[in-house]
């Protein structure tokens, strides 16, 4: 187990090692109006940032707010509070015109390779659109760019004249990646970008993303529910539960030595592809997660209702996100007990 400890006033695990971050979320809060018209807090006071060429993984289950955070960064969802800065500029509530300029530097890849491509436009026209818009390129120049990018993502340039229906899921995801990269963005948000793909294709696409990052020094915000994929891709990992940050730190600390009881539960719940190891892990999960029961509305720690360590304080006082024993920042009143149990 790691025991490196950091002074509380030192650099936070929420920030990249280098000084100026490329994308920064400060105390981000997002509300959704549910079908009952009541505002529902999807993201609650989340702060972290992404450095140049860095990958930050955002992991959590449904309702954790991970997709919402990505959508807020590209202007698809409005922030209710907090600040989002891109390269030092406040982009929380930016004009459509400015957003248009920003979109050349900040792109997103969606989960579903089937609905993310316009079925009625050829692949070439879809890929050309950002070039014509941002670069003012002529059609000929744009066409050359399209061929080069299709080759780069491992497709034949003749793909440009076909419609999306002619491609498999993995090929479509390559096309979606090509579309995001056409304008040479500095940061790409990958929202469950490989979740819909089969294992062998997923590996191909992950390798492609890693290769492109090395080549162009792109930063990724890598959003996924799959911890092992996030661990493989990320320098740092943010763990979310119902809109709040549970743990944040470099991916080795968070994945290999989880400090927060929720991170521990999430890890024990993802099955290991080895029958004996999984049988052992099954027993661990029984200890890591209490059966679901209605959450007390007054609970300050949102995980308290399912946490095996929860005591009264968890329902009275919000735990602060502070450096834990492994170097990651952890929001938990009982982090010492949780870490102690994990090492047994």
């Amino acid at each position: 187990m790691m025991t490196t400890s950091r002074p509380a006033d030192g650099p936070s695990a929420a920030d990249p090692p280098a000084a100026s971050p490329l994308l920064e979320f400060k105390a981000l809060t997002v509300d959704y109006r549910g079908p009952d018209r009541k505002p529902h807090r999807a993201v609650d006071n989340v702060s972290f940032s992404i450095g140049r060429g860095e990958t930050v993984g955002l992991v959590g289950e449904s309702g954790s707010g991970k997709t919402t955070i990505g959508a807020t960064a590209v202007g698809l969802a409005p922030a209710a509070g907090g600040v989002i800065r891109f390269d030092g500029e406040d982009i929380t509530r930016t004009s459509t015109a400015r957003r248009r300029q920003l979109s050349a530097r900040l792109q997103i890849i969606f989960q579903d390779p089937y609905s993310s491509l316009d079925p009625l436009r050829t692949v070439g026209r879809t890929l050309m659109e950002p070039l014509l818009l941002h670069r003012g390129n002529s059609r000929g120049e744009a066409g050359t760019g399209v061929s080069a990018m299709l080759r780069r993502v491992g497709l034949d340039p003749s793909a440009a004249s076909r419609y999306p229906a002619a491609f498999s899921g993995g090929q479509r995801q390559r096309i979606a990646i090509a579309r995001a990269l056409m304008v040479s963005p500095e940061l790409v948000i990958c929202d469950e970008a490989v979740s819909a793909l089969d294992l062998s294709v997923q590996a191909q696409v992950l390798n492609l993303l890693l290769g492109l990052q090395e080549e162009y020094r792109i930063s990724y915000l890598f959003i996924s529910h799959d911890l092992s994929v996030v661990r493989h891709m990320s320098d740092r990992i943010v763990v979310l539960y119902r809109g709040q940050t549970m743990e944040i730190g470099d991916s080795e600390s968070v994945h290999d030595h989880p400090s927060h009881p929720y991170t521990q539960a999430l890890l024990s719940a993802s099955p290991i592809p080895s029958p004996r190891a999984q049988a052992r892990q099954r027993e661990r999960l029984k200890l890591a997660l209490r059966p679901a029961r209605p959450a007390a509305t007054t609970a300050f720690c949102r995980f308290a209702s399912r946490c095996p360590f929860a005591t009264e304080i968890c329902e009275q006082q919000a735990p602060a996100l502070v450096p834990g024993p492994t170097g990651a920042d952890v929001a938990c009143h009982h982090v010492a007990e949780a870490v102690a149990r994990a090492t047994v």
């Binding site: 294709v201 590996a203 493989h232 891709m233 990320s234 320098d235 991916s251």
Partner: peptide, 21 residues
């Protein structure tokens, strides 16, 4: 099985992938 990132011995390095589809 080997394409599973869980088996990757080194994070952020290429995964063994099966060529083609």
């Amino acid at each position: 099985m080997a394409a599973n990132p869980r088996y990757a011995n080194q994070p952020r390095t290429p995964l063994p992938s099966i060529k083609g589809t």
